[in-house]
Design a protein around this nucleic acid. Structure first.
Lengths: 337, 337
DNA sequence: TTGTAGGCGTTATCAT
DNA sequence: ATGATAACGCCTACAA
């Protein structure tokens, strides 16, 4: 009801106690006589008192917030569904008394590192969550070197020397799921459609495909091709696979992304079918895969966000988290009909 | 270089001035003699000084932050692409010295309103950006009633009595674009596939379709059907339209969402074609429409985010923004090939 | 069990 | 052109 917001002093005056008693009533109720506590809490209610976050931050020297980058990416057909990750962070953060602040992606890594540095040093945030880390990423190196608190969504691929907290999804396990699904459906010639560059993520997913075939003891030549994340290129690459002689023509194509799966799906639909059309399996379970009715490997994004906080919360409390890194298992999203 | 972060006092000692002079050097450079100012600024550099955000917040009684809701929505096939909106807010916010804090969506509107209330009163944020407002939305009413600063992405459909700042995209203009595109492509029987409930957004988009046909003076009966945002239902509804007698069969279907467009696309592909397949046009320019090669109305999400800040920034400065509401024009995203 | 004192780092006001 | 002083609202000692 107060036009100007109530402070500890307001409440103290209202309850006829000192402001420290009010503070105790809120944070250490057991230290007060029940009668006083109730009287104080009642005054809190009536005054509409809300603790001032800035004041608390100043006194505790903690922002009680974590920062995460807002990516300008438009290409929702592939890659992280950041919406979900953001919500997971906000949710898990809220449960732990941490707010989530967004910072805009910068043009260069140097600028981004400078911005993060600023957020941390100005105590706008206590820690950072990095997304989409890669081997050529300088951000983890820098943050680790300067002793900042952070957690990466993505393994420290090329940085065994600078270990840090991380959360990732087991890509190889995902493609293994895909291969096993294809095998159960009776497929025998299971091809792989990957990315041309041998980045760590792509290599990991490819490995899951190869190992699953090894484990199943599937004979015959293994076919694979590659394309960048662009539907037309993927369609052409898939067509190369499908144009193989009848005995070698794949009856399933495991794809490294839904974008490639989309291209493969188009190729499969227009290829002169020798028998059943091949089974196309995507990666990321985006709306595109769902719309096309393709199976696709689903990453547990929400769980990843929660896992990040499971690492950061102890870290911020000065303790060591239970593990340095968390590897989450994906699942296979099957079409609904 | 300092292990413990530098404060105004640190810098002041280093430069041999008082801390107030340091503050002035940073915020009111004109009040200082050039020599002193340079000396101070140099000390700032050397000490690696970063202003403490909490301290500034406490002193200025402003959070220098805005809050926005993180939605758990999984259904990326339709609706806002929140990633883009978030990035736009973070970007525009950064340019205006405002951080963006995310709050998790709550189960009920009451809980959400309580949470927002908390953020604002605890000075974790100075204002809120509401997304996905509707006529049955109590959030604007409450926030306006309690005099909070906020901006809604979505018109105050049913709340002419409680005006507030808003930004929206002109849905009718979008479907008009779609109809005109169909006309240019030679279509004459342009149907509409909408939502069954007559919510304001859906009605607005339907109006654009009807008015464009009026303006063009297109003769003949107008066909329309409706379905909820679910591909199968949309497919059935589209099939009802396509099963009309040859002379009445639509040669174009303007859809209220990409989800419905997806269903219509499937229906068009499997319907016994009497001549060319109908032109299907979607709404929202999601990756699904792009993947299917459908034209789709694109909302200027990034611009909308910037527009929100154009309203909020003056409002937070105590001034009136140039306008109460901003209505942005969509564009038509054509398939790339 | 309760109250007092001091500090967190900044900005605003008013002297000098 | 500078500097001293007093908030801002909370928290953590330590006293009473």
């Amino acid at each position: 009801m107060a036009a100007t917001s109530a402070t500890l002093d307001t409440v103290a005056a209202l309850a006829g106690v000192s402001r420290q008693t009010v503070s105790n009533a809120l944070h250490h109720p057991d230290r007060l006589k029940a009668a006083t506590r109730d009287r104080v809490l009642d005054a809190v209610r009536r005054s509409g008192y809300r603790p001032s976050l800035p004041a608390r931050q100043l006194a505790t020297r903690r922002a009680h917030a974590i920062a995460v980058r807002a990516d300008p990416q438009q290409d929702g057909i592939s890659g992280l569904v950041l919406d979900t990750f953001f919500h997971g962070l906000a949710e898990a953060g809220h449960d732990n008394g941490l707010r989530v602040v967004l910072y805009p992606a910068q043009a260069t890594q140097e600028e981004e590192v400078a911005l993060v540095d600023d957020l941390l040093h100005s105590r706008a945030a206590d820690a950072v969550v990095l997304t989409a880390t890669s081997a050529t990423d300088e951000r983890p190196t820098y943050l680790a070197a300067t002793g900042q608190t952070f957690c990466a969504f993505g393994r420290p691929w090329g940085h065994a020397d600078a270990p840090h907290d991380w959360v990732d999804v087991d890509g190889a396990a995902g493609t293994t799921l895909a291969v096993n699904h294809a095998l159960e459906r009776g497929c025998r010639r299971i091809a792989f459609l990957g990315w041309p560059d041998d980045g760590a993520t792509g290599a990991d997913r490819r490995r899951g495909w190869a190992e699953a075939l090894d484990a199943a003891g599937v004979p015959g030549p293994r076919r694979e091709d590659a394309a960048v994340n662009f539907a037309e290129g993927a369609e052409a690459a898939a067509r190369r696979l499908l144009d193989l002689p009848a005995g070698e023509r794949p009856d399933a194509i495991v794809c490294v992304s839904d974008t490639l799966a989309f291209g493969a799906h188009r190729a499969a639909a227009t290829s002169p079918a020798a028998g059943d059309p091949p089974l196309v399996i995507g990666f990321d379970a985006t709306p595109v895969a769902r719309a096309l009715g393709l199976p696709s490997v689903a990453q547990p994004i929400r769980e990843a966000a929660h896992a990040c906080l499971d690492l950061l919360v102890p870290r911020l409390a000065g303790e060591d988290p239970p593990a340095r890194g968390v590897l989450l298992a994906p699942s296979l999203a099957l079409p609904s009909h």
